[in-house]
Design a protein around this nucleic acid. Sequence first.
DNA 1: CTTAGCACTCACACCTATAGAGTGCTAACA
DNA 2: TGTTAGCACTCTATAGGTGTGAGTGCTAAG
Lengths: 343, 343
Amino acid sequence: MLTERQLLILKVTVDDYIQSAQPVGSNQLSKKSEIPFSPATIRNEMADLEGLGFLEKTHTSSGRVPSEKGYRYYVDHMLTPRPLPKEDIVQLRSIFDDKIAETEEVIKRSAMILSELTNYTAILLGPDMRKHTVKKLSIVPLTMDTAVAIIVTDNGHVENRVFTIPQGLDPSDIEKMVNILNERLVGVSLNDLHRRLEQETLTIFKQHVNRYGELFSTFRKAVILPQEDNVYYGGKLNILNQPDFHDLHKIRNLMDVMEESKHIPMILPVGSQGLHIRIGSENALSAMEDCSVITVSYDIGEEQTGSIAIVGPKRMDYKRVVTLLDTLSGDLSKELTRMIRGK
Amino acid sequence: MLTERQLLILKVTVDDYIQSAQPVGSNQLSKKSEIPFSPATIRNEMADLEGLGFLEKTHTSSGRVPSEKGYRYYVDHMLTPRPLPKEDIVQLRSIFDDKIAETEEVIKRSAMILSELTNYTAILLGPDMRKHTVKKLSIVPLTMDTAVAIIVTDNGHVENRVFTIPQGLDPSDIEKMVNILNERLVGVSLNDLHRRLEQETLTIFKQHVNRYGELFSTFRKAVILPQEDNVYYGGKLNILNQPDFHDLHKIRNLMDVMEESKHIPMILPVGSQGLHIRIGSENALSAMEDCSVITVSYDIGEEQTGSIAIVGPKRMDYKRVVTLLDTLSGDLSKELTRMIRGK
DNA sequence: CTTAGCACTCACACCTATAGAGTGCTAACA
DNA sequence: TGTTAGCACTCTATAGGTGTGAGTGCTAAG
């Protein structure tokens, strides 16, 4: 178990390193007002902390740098959350200033503001589209052989897809089709849409619509949702500001990984609730082994959830980011819930 | 005027430097089969070319590097376009492989493929949305006080915006409004939509719709198009692969500039026809002074145009990129025109 | 006009020396 | 016994010095 003094020295070392990005020496620490010990004492303690694996040296005679274990201990035991400074609160609240009526828009803004406030990269995941239900379906003919299928969901999101219609189809058939679709499919979640489409409407089409086969099959293709990526980024380039990242190759890998949608589930664990911190090699992706990721979830109504991630160097300002995410998560949950409830 | 031999040496120097990114020395050149002169002769010629401003040295005893004037001369007089290699043509054509029915989708793919083929960054600008005409307007109520306004354009693009509806409005009023809007505004270009909305529908609303004022004004706000950015990128991170760029700060500036939509008109001159090459300081933006940009326009039907830009180092493979852009511009024009004509 | 030869220049890589920051250890002190 | 001053030591970072090699310009011979 760590002594009171070791705790203090560990904390101050981590704080100092987070702030300066420079290895922390015993002299430097002894000058701080909260540390009333001589450099020699500090050296002894730091040597112990190093022995315990909380600190490391970059070379034999350098100052100390927190190890991953050190950061882990720090975030587990030393994050006494302060209230957010006023100016931060003002900025966060500005997300909801203009009365934006779209979830998507609010999330986009959150990503931007969050990245500005932290100087790290923000990744926001919107609520799972597939849980939304169909509010209205329509088909608008464009040319002789193309039309656009439109699906409006209960949250105001509009999906649309152009598809080809079979040659020489009677326009009234399309109208019939739209009517049937709306009768049967309004209220169905996007997730079930595909299945229900076949179960509930195919037989009725057979009775009412000429040449239903071709029309039905091209329309069906159109409503296969292309796993619409509701991922929003803020401050993608902020990595380039961090002194911790200098290796162009690593930066490129990291940026690649973050943009690649298939990696998103590894960064933002969709199911998990609450706030999580992953430090360095705790991340699943090797490209992120020099990063820390803080994630938090938010709720919209009772059913839907989204999540937020901040990606920064291991030397991240954990305290600040945790407080910001806590606050934003709460705000987003409240405001977005209010929005879907219709005030 | 340059002699035959100077031309040859300039061309080979530029070609070599484009390929190797290393200053080109006289010995190196003399080894090439197309250069039958001794290093000494080449040195004399290179000294002359330097005097004329086509080549420069990085330091007194280094090999030569093309100056901007050198590149300019090269692209103006030495670009003898070869036909594209087969594998490139195959890749380019693959853009149109799956029968995609949406302009937007085709442009997105073009950006991706183009950046893969060149290893540079591709920026594609779609046709000006504002020229498109309204095919159908609709309003779908979501909650008690919100609804989503949907505008389908003739090219199958769907604009949508959530807006608030005044408390306690009769649903039939909304229906009336939609009918009036469609009667009056179908066929109007998005550009004129706002003006025509007031001119043609306001008076009719007054006669038919209760509390037209509030409804009208919130709806009007919703259809102010947020200058929807139809800019698509491919290979944003390719800059990081270029050995020419090592200064993190410059890279950051460059990437910033390219993403910022307000700078897009400076990179992609919207009006201009045909192919243009801007080398280094010929670019309007100082962040791009180390880049070359090649732009080309394409046409969709008789009215609409879009443009393509490739951003790379000054040491860009001009020949290849020009040929690629020429081909793609033609292909895009043809295919997209075919698409809007409806086969 | 071309080119071989040669002196010269400069970047780069490789040492060496030095300063400075930091350490661990020991012995004295409270 | 815990704390600290003192000191030798280690290692980085920086600056200066040297050698090598690629490249040059110039000159004179072919």
